[in-house]
């Protein structure tokens, strides 16, 4: 099992912005007790979804070669609850990126209504061992494909994102 808190990307412009969606369903077990009779998508997992959206944007910028971790959330505000049946739209904007990390601003919307907004800081860690794969074979590439990153991803000039060669099975 993987820690997925987004369903798929709907837009990604390399180095600039990304949008992903998460559909909240009552079939998700964690909603059964959170809270009893008042199923509510935990805000911590909404933050995780926003961080995954922004984190992939950060990671894609360096062709998925850096280990990107959520390092700090300097600011987060929640405006309302998300409940089963809602589709959360997470938008991330890359504000700054450098060798040691990156900063992004993110929002979560339910339709036109803002649900949450956050600033997130990411760090690039273990740079000396980052070339060693964390995933077996083509698993990481399969994950990126299942999130539709290469279906919707574009470079700033509008050209489609190329699938990183180092993620293909023969090079791993």
């Amino acid at each position: 099992m993987r820690w997925f808190w987004i369903d798929r990307f709907t837009e990604l412009v390399s180095g600039e912005t990304a949008t992903a969606i998460k559909t909240v369903s009552l079939s998700e077990e964690h909603l059964h007790d959170h809270f009893l009779g008042i199923p509510t998508m935990p805000n911590s997992l909404i933050l995780e979804g926003m961080a995954q959206t922004a984190g992939m944007l950060v990671s894609q910028y360096n062709a998925f070669k850096e280990r990107v971790i959520l390092a700090k959330v300097p600011r987060i505000v929640f405006h309302c609850r998300a409940v089963p049946g809602d589709t959360l739209t997470y938008r991330a904007k890359l504000e700054a990126i450098e060798e040691s990390g990156a900063r992004a601003t993110t929002t979560s919307h339910i339709g036109d209504q803002i649900q949450s907004e956050a600033e997130i800081l990411f760090a690039h860690i273990d740079r000396e061992t980052a070339h060693r794969p964390l995933f077996a074979g083509a698993d990481f590439g399969d994950l990126l494909r299942s999130l539709k990153i290469f279906d919707v991803g574009r470079n700033p000039d509008g050209s489609p994102l190329a699938y990183p060669e180092h993620l293909s099975p023969q090079s791993s």
Partner: peptide, 13 residues
């Protein structure tokens, strides 16, 4: 340590 990266980004902006 991570705050220094945060501070650097804020000062740059």
């Amino acid at each position: 340590s991570i705050d220094f990266l945060d501070i650097v980004f804020r000062l740059e902006k």
